[in-house]
């Protein structure tokens, strides 16, 4: 098992922050190349990242609560938890598209996908992990 599977609650936010700095550099380069408003784009991206981390925390809290309940009550708890997370995403994205514009919205979409990107890029972080007993 990789480090991510052993302790996702601590590892995922750490990797999201690491990847976010890398993506900030890449987005800044793309913004300069395509003559986009770089400040707005980066603000939109980081707001997306923060919203995504907040919602990941909500997933963790919701999951911990769910596993302490009976099976019937769990479905309702998780569905309400999802609605709360979607409302947070809605507020974030609508605010960004209205206040910062379309380009910032596109970077915010990348920002709110960061947890998924961090999970799917696990292989890059753990290259060679587990070899020779390490």
């Amino acid at each position: 098992m990789s480090q991510l599977q052993n302790d996702p609650i601590r590892v995922i936010p750490k990797r999201v922050i690491q990847l976010a700095f890398l993506f900030t550099f890449l987005i800044a380069v793309v913004s300069i190349l395509f003559k986009m408003p770089i400040i707005n784009v980066l603000i939109g991206y980081w707001i997306g990242v923060v919203a995504n981390l907040i919602n990941f925390r909500l997933i963790v809290v919701g999951t911990k609560n769910a596993l302490d309940q009976q099976e019937k009550g769990v479905k309702k708890t998780m569905q309400m938890n999802l609605v709360i997370r979607l409302v947070i995403y809605a507020g974030t994205l609508v605010g960004i598209v209205l206040l910062l514009g379309t380009q910032a919205f596109i970077s915010a979409i990348i920002g709110i996908s960061m947890v998924r990107i961090a999970i799917q890029t696990d292989g890059f972080f753990t290259f060679g992990y587990g070899k020779n007993g390490k």
């Binding site: 052993n6 302790d7 919701g62 609508v94």
Partner: peptide
């Protein structure tokens, strides 16, 4: 719980994509 958190985080993204299309 650990496996479920990973699954929940991945599954959530499809809802976000639909939401992004709507916005």
């Amino acid at each position: 719980m650990q496996m479920m958190i990973l699954g929940q985080a991945i599954a959530e993204t499809s809802a976000i994509y639909g939401f992004v299309v709507a916005i």
